[in-house]
Design a protein around this nucleic acid. Structure first.
Lengths: 199, 199, 199, 199
DNA sequence: CATGAATGAGTTTTCATTCAT
DNA sequence: CATGAATGAAAACTCATTCAT
């Protein structure tokens, strides 16, 4: 007999297990049985805590929200805030590719209904919006190159994170992951800042 | 009785249907029944053409290879080649999001075995290598900014395509898709070229 | 909703049903659906108790072991032991032909893998060994005819049981089954014992 | 394109292939596909030569008939005839266990309908009848022991063949197969003849 | 005769979900 | 809360059989 735990705790355990499974094995292996196995309970028990599998996916979304929202130290300088944001995400990618992969793949979105798709898009847009805000403010303060295209730059930044993610997964990096995290931000900076070179 | 077609044709049809389904609805709906329905045959018939569902996924990989390998007009100038590559992919994204989604998500990779994972990573690396080659050549010809970080730029470019893909899906673009294709390339150029601003 | 039973019991039920079906209808009708029908559950439920159909066949083997191992009243006299063995089996044939049919046909063996084939051969060898031991002991005690060929006699005895089995099935006996059981043993005795005729 | 052959020839090929498959792999693998593969044609082609799979099983029965009927050299002496019969069968067992196994297992019978079961039983009875006739004649001529039980002896003889068959399949013989063929007949003789020993 | 494509009716297995204990 | 047995519906095959070519 497994330890009995209050629902709240079990729910978190199950949601985390779901993230792990989906991240590591894909949605195909996101089944009640596997989930239960991961948590250490029997499969029927899952449904004491969640109405059905979709409810779990919804909880996964909530959890993603939590995990990604954590944006500590709201720095004064917009570029610093941006740097924090980007390096946080790059680091998150390096450490737990599963979550990011969930966020970027549209397969989780597919599994959720209309509503879920809207929520996940919102989650991604929230990131974009944060970037956009930082960029705008930085631009207003004259910190960026004059001809900057804000929308393009938003794509550039989100894209860099995704490019990094996939490269890490493919083992396609010729340098150490930690070094690449640094270089990635440098590359972005170089793209955004006015040319410092004497050229 | 359904129309009879030579196996070769049916195989292609099935592989294409698979791409469509996985792209539009996700791997969860990649089932023999749905596939058969899409192609207009009975589900058992699928297995006269493919050993099992995995064989179909393998064929999907082959098809991706074909679809992405097409490298038209090998331009002289490396930056032109790069532009072709990027705008081709961006356009592919806009037109048939399924393919790119398949290529970038790791869910197809999960569904395939070890071998499949290696192949899909190789497929992505092939894209990276093409970009890297163009960048190196451009750099050697002095077309890029002096302090360019090639590896970082590769991430930037692959990521840009992905960022664009997701942004389109999320309806997160404030401008028209076709315009954004242009601006995306411009943004990349601005990130790569020597700063023209001061001159 | 069907009666709930502990797995152990269900497993036995299923294994027994399997023996009945295979014995009466042959391996061709050994299907999950038929099995479930016999036991009174739905076919999917079978697989909550057994991993797959092969696991059921393996359980059938275990059950055969149990059913055939029962070696009652270990008599003192080797010929008495032998008589018990033979009449037990002959009786078993008459009562539940399924078991013997399974034991002697190699179709169960085919359905099982290498391992299963070895086990079923072992099961049969165990019977042979028992017979051989009895015969040797009886021979040592001078109870058998001098020129007895032990190996040949082993074949004779195992074969007699099989011959009886098939004769019963074919309705080829001109006398009553129970009588034949007696006469079969008498015939064997006559074949093994020193000729009493002349004395 | 495979060589085209007249139906008669193909039918024999198919029936023989069926015997081989059922004998070696069991009824479970007796499928149109496997049959076709064995013969070297495509599965659909099977049904150009046979109405359905049952027709093939019926043909198998015919073939068994042919193969078992061949009882050459009808010797004068009933014991010689018996010896020929037994040693022929024992030898057949040693050479191609598949056919005999088919004859004795009731799984082929199951696969055939009522009619088929009757035919296969008849086939076996025919053997028994032959034995019975020989024994009766020998008995009348005073060649056998006085107290002989004809029915029991019929079982003894058919059983010996079956015991030999299974022993060969199990690799349970401690002596060479050819030697055992001889000893098996000797054992039977010893069981049937008046005691020759001086005792 | 032979092939190759298709089918319909299984068969095995998986899986979310329910519910008595 | 948790379990263990059961279910219904679907998914992944399998297979005999048909038929146009």
């Amino acid at each position: 007999m497994t330890l009995r735990k209050p629902t709240a705790e079990r729910r978190r355990e199950i949601a985390d297990a779901a993230i792990t499974i989906i991240g590591k094995r894909g949605l195909r292996e996101f089944t009640a049985a596997r989930l239960a196995q991961e948590v250490g309970i029997k499969d029927g028990t899952i449904f004491r805590h969640f109405k059905d599998m979709n409810a779990i996916l919804a909880a996964v979304l909530d959890r993603l929200h939590e995990l990604l929202e954590a944006d500590p130290r709201p720095a004064e300088d917009p570029l610093d805030r941006l740097k924090d944001f980007v390096t946080n995400r790059l680091h998150a990618v390096a450490v737990q590719p599963g979550i990011q992969s969930l966020l970027f793949s549209d397969h989780l979105a597919h599994a959720l209904g209309e509503e879920g798709q809207r929520r996940i898009a919102a989650l991604r847009n929230q990131g974009r919006q944060y970037i956009r805000t930082c960029l705008c403010e930085a631009s207003r303060k004259g910190l960026l190159r004059k001809d900057i295209d804000i929308e393009g730059s938003v794509l550039l930044i989100t894209g860099m994170v995704m490019g990094f993610l996939i490269a890490v997964k493919d083992g396609a990096l010729s340098v150490k992951i930690e070094d690449m995290e640094q270089r990635a931000w440098q590359t972005l900076l170089a793209a955004l800042l006015p040319n410092q070179g004497v050229s």
